[in-house]
Design a protein around this nucleic acid. Structure first.
Length: 241
DNA sequence: ATCCTCGGTGGCCACAACGT
DNA sequence: ACGTTGTGGCCACCGAGGAT
């Protein structure tokens, strides 16, 4: 939309002069000279082709045209002021950057973001996918942990696979992770069928570093211990990823 | 009636921003 | 570099109103 408007400064001067009913007072308010006010009003009247003030001796009076236009002009300036204030507030708003593993982002975070944005519309959320892991210090639980970086000015939350305390961070447990064995012995030609947990002794064990971290160390030995075959199967052998 | 003060007007100029 | 345009200051002037 194209707005056909006179110079906004002339409108601003007109509003001040109309409010004070004095060019001099308007000039004082706007920190310009009275002559400048007179020029602005004159240029506005020339632009509009309408007289805005009745010059009657000392002082000025609004014409009917000016009196009719003034309320809507003030509404317009109020709207402009509100819009500028909105820009300032918007600039002061805090962005929130969430760093999280891709799987966590897709399955847990994204379904909840829409609701969060509805409740906190002023917070601009940015999601950064990251697969980096956090080395656990004192491991005390199997969990996904939220780390609030308390050591920087960044408004950010990092979500990592990990457990325990991290110096300089605050960590909150979101939920635990269940470890499930996935085996496909038929894919390896010549290997016997997999029937009992102890049969894993004749198969290659694949290690996922992420799962090992979640499991407080190596996931396979823990699973084999729960299955009661830790003494029959070496859970540390096999390639790592 | 005269003088003074106040406030608006108009001409002129300087300056900055912008387009050519 | 030059011209145009917008903005605003300076200054002289004018008219109205109040004081004497």
């Amino acid at each position: 939309m194209i707005y056909r408007l006179p110079p906004l400064n002339a409108l601003r001067v007109f509003e001040a002069a109309a409010r004070h009913l004095s060019f001099k007072e308007a000039a004082n308010e706007l920190s310009i000279t009275q002559a400048a006010v007179s020029h602005q009003i004159k240029s506005l009247e020339d632009y509009l082709g309408v007289q805005l003030f009745k010059r009657a001796g000392r002082g000025v009076q609004l014409t009917e045209a000016a009196r009719a236009a003034l309320p809507r002009l003030r509404d317009g300036f109020d709207a402009l002021a509100a819009a500028v204030e909105t820009i300032h507030v918007r600039a002061d708003e805090t962005d929130l950057e969430i760093t999280a593993p891709p799987v966590f982002t897709a399955r847990w975070l994204m379904p909840r973001l829409a609701d969060f944005s509805r409740r906190e519309p002023k917070i601009d959320v940015r999601v950064v996918s990251s697969s980096k892991m956090v080395d656990a210090g004192a491991l005390d639980s199997t969990a996904l942990m939220v780390n609030h970086d308390l050591r920087s000015d960044a408004s950010g939350v990092e979500i990592h696979l990990g457990a325990g305390d991290y110096p300089g961070y605050r960590a909150d447990r979101l939920f635990g992770v269940a470890t499930v064995v996935v085996a496909s012995p038929q894919l390896v030609k010549g290997t016997p069928p997999l029937g009992e947990p102890a049969d894993l002794a004749r198969h290659t064990l694949l290690h996922d570093d992420a799962m090992d971290l979640v499991a407080h160390g190596h996931a396979w030995p823990k699973w084999l211990e729960v299955a009661g075959v830790a003494d029959k199967v070496d859970g540390t052998r096999g390639p790592r990823f």
